[in-house]
């Protein structure tokens, strides 16, 4: 099975961020970057499928020079080769524009399966996988925790809300958006890093792929949220404090 995994390099989770002078993105020099978490799970799923059924795992990432780091990391963990779409202007493309770049690079590979992480940790739009499916003309399913290969294609376990799950069958080729937590991630090894040195990373520029860059949605600006995360101690009698807590959990934290 030929599997392509779309991965993204994102600012490290705990990075302290500052807004850049233009007010449209963060000051990237301050920040260290890492592989997006759900993409790591997508990669893990791909590697396990390969281990079970054979085939090839190709990772693809769009981004500037530094994004090469996550491609090498993926190769070290067991991917066979990489495709790096070199683009410094991703900030000016919307999710559709980025997905078009990826789709243009994926199409000629004729994959059996395309995996993407459910959602990025930076923009959090959570759409790339599904848009890719539409652009490639493949069926898809998202929030996937487990993948089984069947005679007819795939049977996947999809997460629903509030502790419910669902099994879905779909034919190949297909696109799956992988939810974090379905598998146990493997750690990078010294042996993997050494072996990765000889693996191929193909570079493609956005220009070559000829994808449309005009956005339909633009990020006008970014700002710090009004409330910084800090502990709110709720005062009053047990009854008052409890009522206040329930109110906060429902309408401020929105977790109930």
């Amino acid at each position: 099975m030929k599997i392509i995994v779309a991965i993204k390099q994102v600012p490290e989770r705990d990075a302290q961020v500052r807004i850049d002078p233009v007010g449209k993105w963060i000051e990237e020099l301050d920040v260290q970057f890492a592989l997006n978490e759900s993409d790591a799970y997508a990669l893990e799923e791909a590697l396990q499928l390969k281990e079970k059924h054979g085939g090839e795992v190709i990772v693809i990432s769009a981004g500037p020079e530094r994004a090469g780091q996550v491609i090498r990391e993926a190769l070290a963990k067991g991917a066979d080769r990489g495709i790096h779409i070199e683009a410094d202007d991703l900030g000016s493309r919307d999710a559709l524009g980025v997905a078009r770049l990826l789709a243009a690079a994926i199409q000629p590979e004729n994959p059996d399966l395309v995996l993407a992480g459910l959602q990025s940790e930076d923009l959090g739009l959570g759409q790339t996988g599904v848009i890719l499916a539409e652009l490639l003309g493949f069926p898809h399913s998202s929030l996937i925790l487990h993948v089984d290969v069947t005679a007819k294609g795939l049977k996947v376990k999809r997460e629903l809300e509030e502790g419910w799950f669902q099994s879905i069958e779909l034919p190949l080729p297909a696109v799956l958006a992988i939810q974090s937590g379905g598998n146990k991630l493997r750690y990078a090894t010294l042996m993997g890093i050494k072996r990765a040195k000889t693996k191929e990373v193909r570079r493609a520029s956005a220009g070559e792929l000829g994808a449309d860059a005009s956005p339909v949605v633009i990020l006008e600006g970014i700002s710090l949220p009004q409330k910084q995360r800090s502990t709110q101690i709720l005062p009053g009698s047990p009854k008052e404090a409890s009522a206040a807590l329930v109110e906060k959990l429902r309408f401020e934290a929105r977790v109930l």
Partner: peptide
């Protein structure tokens, strides 16, 4: 303008629709 969270809530972004559809 539509506000949504970025970087897992550490920032907030303002989005505007510019498409024709």
């Amino acid at each position: 303008v539509f506000a949504r969270q970025l970087l897992q809530g550490r920032l907030q972004g303002s989005y505007r629709h510019t498409g024709t559809g």
